[in-house]
Amino acid sequence: MSDGSRTALSKSTFHFAAGLGSGVLSAVLLQPIDLLKTRVQQSGSHSLAAAIADIRAAPRLLPALWRGAVPSALRTGFGSAIYFTSLNAIRQSAARWNSATPLHGQAGKSSAAGSSSLPKLSNTSNLLAGAVARSFAGLLLMPLTVLKVRYESTLYAYTSLSAAARDIFARDGLRGFFAGYGATAVRDAPYAGLYVLFYEQGKKRLAALFPATTPTTPTTSNIQSNPNEKTPMALTHAASINFASGVLAGIICSVLSNPFDAVKTRIQLQPTRYRNMVHAARRMVGEEGARALWDGLALRMSRKAVSSALAWTVYEELVRRMERGLVSPREGREERQGL
C-alpha cells in the first residue's frame, strides 16, 4: 500500500472514529430530551407535563430518564460515524470534480481564516451531499431507530433490546425493523441537506461578524517551527463559531422537518394503525387536528439544535487535530502548491 493510500485510509478511519465519538457523546447527554419527545409524540395527549409525571413516578428516576440510552447511543454513534465518513467522501469527490474548489489542506489563506478544515463547496453541493449521506446512514441504522423508539415508549413493556427485537420480528417480520423509513428519509434527507447548507453559511457569516484575532488553523510547519506558539484562543473561537452555527442550523431545520418526525414516530410505534406516511398524516390530522404534526417540536428543536451543534463541533475539532498530526511540513507545502 502506498503512503498516499495509507494516509487516505487513516483519514477515513479517523473521520469514522470522530463521528462515532461525537455521536455517542451527544446521544448520551441529551437522551432525557429525546425520551420526552417520544412520549409526547406517541399519542394525541400533547402533554409534556403528563410525560414528566410518568417518568417521575418511576421507582428510580435516573434509569427512567435515560431509558433507551443504549440503542440511542448505538444508533446516533454509528449513524454519525457513517454519516460523517460518507459525507466527507462525497464532499472530497465533489471538490476534486470542481478544480476551483479547495480540498483539505489546499485552501491556503482562505481556509486558514475560517473555522473549519473541511472541503468548501457550493450551496447546492452542500445540500445534496448532506441529503445523500444522511439517507444512506439512515437506511443502515433504521433497525436501531425502531428499537430505540419502541424502547422509549410506554406502549411496550420491553425489558431488554433482545426482547424488543424478538417482539418486532414476531409481529411484523423483517419489515418491522424498517417501519417508518419513508417518513424518516423524507424528514432526514432534507434536514441533513439544509443543515449542511445553513451550517456552512452560518460559519461563513459568523466568522465575518466575529473575526478571530489569531489564525484559527495554523499550518503544521508553523506549529513545529514554534511549538510554543499554540492558539487556544483561536481554537476556542473556531469551536464557538461552529457551535453557534450548528445551533442556528438545527433550530431552522427542526421546525421545517417536525411534521415528518411526528408521523415517523407514530408509524414506528403502531405500524398496524398507521400504514404509511400519507395515511398516518391524514389520520393524525383528522383525529387530533393539525397540532398533532407539531407534537414535540420544542423538545426536538432543543435536542436537535444542541446535539447537532455538539456533534459537529466535536467532529470538526477532532478532524482539525487529525489534520495536523497526519500532514508533515513537506506534505503540507506540497499540498498548498497543488503538487
Rank of each mutant, 00 (worst) to 15 (best):
T76S: 05
S80I: 02
S80W: 11
S80P: 03
A81H: 00
A81V: 02
T85L: 14
T85E: 00
N88Y: 06
N88R: 04
Q92M: 13
Q92E: 15
S93V: 09
S93E: 12
R96F: 09
R96L: 13
N98T: 11
S99Y: 00
A100N: 11
A100H: 08
A100P: 02
T101M: 13
G105C: 11
G105Y: 06
Q106L: 05
G108H: 04
K109V: 13
S110I: 14
S110M: 13
A113C: 02
G114R: 06
G114W: 04
G114N: 02
S115V: 10
S115R: 03
L118N: 09
L118S: 14
P119L: 10
K120N: 14
S122H: 00
N123T: 14
T124H: 12
L127G: 04
L127Y: 07
A129S: 15
A129R: 00
G130K: 05
A131V: 07
V132Q: 05
V132G: 11
A137P: 01
G138L: 05
L140H: 03
M142K: 05
L144E: 03
L144H: 07
T145S: 12
T145N: 00
T145Q: 13
V146L: 06
V146S: 07
V146K: 01
Y151A: 01
E152S: 10
Y156H: 15
T159I: 05
S160G: 10
S162E: 09
A163C: 07
A163W: 00
A165W: 07
A165Q: 09
A165G: 08
D167S: 15
A170L: 12
R171A: 12
G173I: 09
G176A: 05
G176L: 04
F177N: 06
F178G: 01
F178Y: 15
A179N: 12
A179P: 03
G180L: 00
T184C: 10
A185S: 14
A185I: 12
A185M: 13
V186F: 09
R187C: 12
D188Q: 09
D188I: 03
A189H: 02
P190A: 12
P190H: 13
Y191Q: 13
A192G: 15
Y195Q: 10
L197W: 13
L197I: 08
